[in-house]
């Protein structure tokens, strides 16, 4: 495959054709904040936290779905990017009910970590305080819509890695939500194989093992990586 040369934050790098800017940056040890991206599953550009500036392009582009091109000049950090990333995070906090103090993911949550890393010490928009339910009908797992950021990681692992196609997104705007099959209680689903990949993939406290209490929900992403490596490279190597 042809190699492309480009500049990220002033650093000259080479990347393979077809790679995303996010992949190229991470190989060059340049960190771009992400939320909906999950190693091993295809990217959809849902969260817009990985936005970057590309010279000559007036709008901001998501690094996870933008392919590298010859001579690209990219900035991953600027006043403008920080402003938008912070605003995006604040809107995510305002849109659902994130009561970290009583959340199963407190201390292990990607939204929470992004918040404090990117300087969100308060949310400037009014909180919506919507009414959402918690689905605890499944024998092993629960889904708390109050904590969901609609990153769709659960949907993608369910379809792409497990091949069950149980999880889906329904509705529009602030009414969008994760559903099971044709919008039924999770416990009634015939398609769910109870594999728990969605629970491992979720960045927040939205999907959890039943019985976890405040701060107890830690995830083990190595199980997902193991499966993806096994499938794509035919190598069965357990992560250390």
């Amino acid at each position: 495959m042809a190699a492309k040369t480009l500049t990220i934050d002033g650093k000259q790098i080479t990347a393979e054709e077809g790679e995303t800017v996010l992949q190229a940056a991470s190989e060059a040890k340049i960190n771009i904040p992400t939320l909906c991206h999950l190693d091993g599953v295809y990217d959809v550009g849902a969260c817009r936290l990985c936005l970057i500036e590309v010279a000559g392009v007036p709008k901001l582009l998501p690094a996870c779905t933008t392919k590298v091109a010859e001579g690209m000049e990219i900035k991953t950090d600027s006043e403008r990017l920080r402003k938008y990333r912070r605003m995006t995070l604040e809107l995510l906090f305002a849109e659902r009910n994130h009561v970290c103090a009583v959340c199963v993911s407190n201390g292990h949550c990607e939204l929470q970590t992004l918040g404090y890393s990117l300087g969100v010490d308060h949310v400037r928009s009014d909180y919506l305080f919507p009414k959402w339910s918690v689905d605890t009908t499944h024998s092993l797992y629960g889904m708390d819509h109050n904590r969901c950021v609609l990153c769709s990681r659960c949907v993608r692992v369910c379809w792409h890695i497990e091949g069950a196609g149980t999880k889906n997104i329904a509705g529009r705007g602030t009414k969008s939500n994760i559903i099971t099959d044709l919008n039924m209680p999770w416990g009634d689903s015939d398609s769910c194989t109870k594999c728990g990949k969605c629970v491992q993939a979720c960045p927040t406290g939205a999907l959890f093992h039943k019985g976890s209490t405040v701060g107890e929900m830690e995830r083990d992403r190595s199980r997902l990586e193991f499966l993806v490596t096994a499938r794509e490279k035919k190598q069965w190597i357990a992560a250390d």
Partner: peptide, 20 residues
């Protein structure tokens, strides 16, 4: 200075807002 999550985010006391 807004001090602590209840002052900063309204936190647990604001859970009644979810009732409409």
């Amino acid at each position: 200075i807004a001090f602590g999550d209840c002052a900063v985010t309204a936190n647990v006391p604001a859970m009644r807002n979810q009732l409409g």
